[in-house]
């Protein structure tokens, strides 16, 4: 178990990292956010332990601080994805749970979750998920277990894993056409549109919709 102090450091670094990513580098502003969100005197500790540098009015992260901030943010957003997509938690509740879990997930576990979900690039709220080692491997053609239909090669038969969409209409339409999780589908072609076969039905969708349909081999 990590100490309270440890958790505070991780939490603040994650806050600072996301602020800097957004282009916010004003020291006083971020300091206020950290004071309010974590605790009063953590900033001094961060500077003393060499995670954070103060350069006039700008805040900077050292290499060590940067690594932790990025990693915690990654774990947080991946957890949110897992909760929302696979476990179907309500979107309003996931942030809080992810806040707890992010400190207790190892880098390896985060990579496994990331691979399982098909290396998602955005959290359910639309913020980018920093890539991990597993994602770079995936770019080197190691396929994850679950991946969007758009990455499948034509002619392959796969199982539908889940459909990620906030659009009620799309979901219902795809379900009614027989695209129900667990069903076997074959991708016929990818251009000019995606043509898939489910049972005896041929369905055409465009690339954006193909990106919402996650499948597994």
């Amino acid at each position: 178990m990590k100490t309270k102090e440890n958790l505070d450091v991780e939490e603040s670094l994650s806050l600072i990292w996301t602020s800097i990513q957004r282009g916010d580098t004003n020291f006083n502003k971020i300091d206020a956010v950290v004071k309010k969100g974590v605790c009063e005197n953590v900033m001094n500790q961060l500077i003393a332990e060499g995670y954070v540098l103060k350069d006039n009015e700008t805040i900077k992260l050292t290499a060590k601080g940067e690594e932790i901030g990025r990693e915690i943010t990654r774990r947080h957003r991946l957890t949110e994805r897992l909760l929302a997509d696979v476990l179907e938690f309500d979107k309003t509740a996931i942030d809080e749970i992810a806040c707890d879990l992010e400190h207790n997930i190892s880098t390896e576990l985060a990579d496994s979750i990331c691979t399982l979900l098909g290396h998602p690039t955005e959290c359910p709220h639309g913020a980018p998920i920093p890539s991990g080692k597993c994602c770079q491997k995936s770019e080197n053609k190691i396929k994850s277990i679950v991946f969007p239909l758009s990455q499948l090669d034509p002619g392959e038969e796969v199982k539908l894993a889940y459909i990620v969409t906030t659009n009620h209409g799309y979901l219902h339409k795809l379900l009614s056409l027989g695209l129900i999780p667990g069903v076997k589908i074959i991708l016929h072609q990818k251009f000019p549109s995606f043509i898939i076969k489910v049972n005896e039905t041929q369905i055409a969708v465009d690339e954006e919709v193909a990106n919402l349909i996650y499948v597994r081999k």
Binding site: Y170, L177, Q202, I203, A204
Partner: peptide
């Protein structure tokens, strides 16, 4: 408004 993507059955 959001673009409305293509989802169509091919008889």
């Amino acid at each position: 408004g959001e673009p409305n993507n293509l989802i169509i059955e091919l008889p």
